[in-house]
Design a protein around this nucleic acid. Sequence first.
DNA 1: GTCCTTAAGTTGACTAGTTCAAAACAACGG
DNA 2: CCGTTGTTTTGAACTAGTCAACTTAAGGAC
Lengths: 157, 157
Amino acid sequence: METTWGHQLRAVGLRVTRPRLSVLDVLSTHPHADADTVVTGARAQHPTLSPQTVYGVLEALVSVGLARRIEPAGSPALFELRVGDNHHHLVCRSCGAVADVDCAVGAAPCLSPSDTSGFVVDEAEVVFWGLCRGCQAEAAPESVQIDEHEIPGGASS
Amino acid sequence: METTWGHQLRAVGLRVTRPRLSVLDVLSTHPHADADTVVTGARAQHPTLSPQTVYGVLEALVSVGLARRIEPAGSPALFELRVGDNHHHLVCRSCGAVADVDCAVGAAPCLSPSDTSGFVVDEAEVVFWGLCRGCQAEAAPESVQIDEHEIPGGASS
DNA sequence: GTCCTTAAGTTGACTAGTTCAAAACAACGG
DNA sequence: CCGTTGTTTTGAACTAGTCAACTTAAGGAC
């Protein structure tokens, strides 16, 4: 079932290797994983995998557009396979959990700042900061129902 | 003229010290300075100042709301004194220069993501990525007039 | 199937940026 | 002027990530 990754890799001119397949597999099950989470996860299939290799794989995937790197303040870099669409992120201030958000107003509302100061803008990145459901419950335990649907997220190192 | 900083510090319950005044002074002239820039700049007034002290001062200023910390991907943390308004940033992909942008559409257009996944959002942070005027000139030297109004920025370590 | 080229993985040292902890110092209220 | 306590200093440590030399193996050619 993971041979799909092989095709994707070949399609962009990358060789199909075990570290790459493992990393892609981990990313598909951990949508916002940091490098350390990827290393740990990928070792299930490839126990001798080194962090440096994972950094190399992640960089390769990002450079060909198979993966995207995000760096919320205070977290290590996170990687996701959802690329090519215009989506943004919700980040929990407390636990670092990350969730995807489609750009609310369609095209790109914030994409046109009033005064660009001479910059040529090619991307508007939006990060919504707040508290995830689980951390809301911790913050106000008496009045909030605890809902067990939250994403643990990969950003707690 | 910098005694104003003294009042500001006292108003938020912080003691007035030389490192703090120096750091505030540097931040007022370098609107988006990283820690290293602050250390270097503040040493003009206080040559023995250590980086650790600057980190402490910056954290104190941020925690009382006199300064704000931003962390564009790929740059060390930057600090600015412009707080309390809803403004965003333009970041140059090439040189790391940072410029302020007022939120284009008034209140907060992106502040309401369509699906918050259970998060309670308290801030929408927008980063516009692009090329500053100077780096546009470097990228296409033949057809761009070089305009010497650009901000060097403090993000190139 | 085997060989060869070259991309990719491995190993290990190393850096930047930041944080932590204990001891010395100094702001400012009394 | 003195004492309390918040700040600074000093120095070490830590995390995330990078760099470079060497080894391995992917995949095209034969």
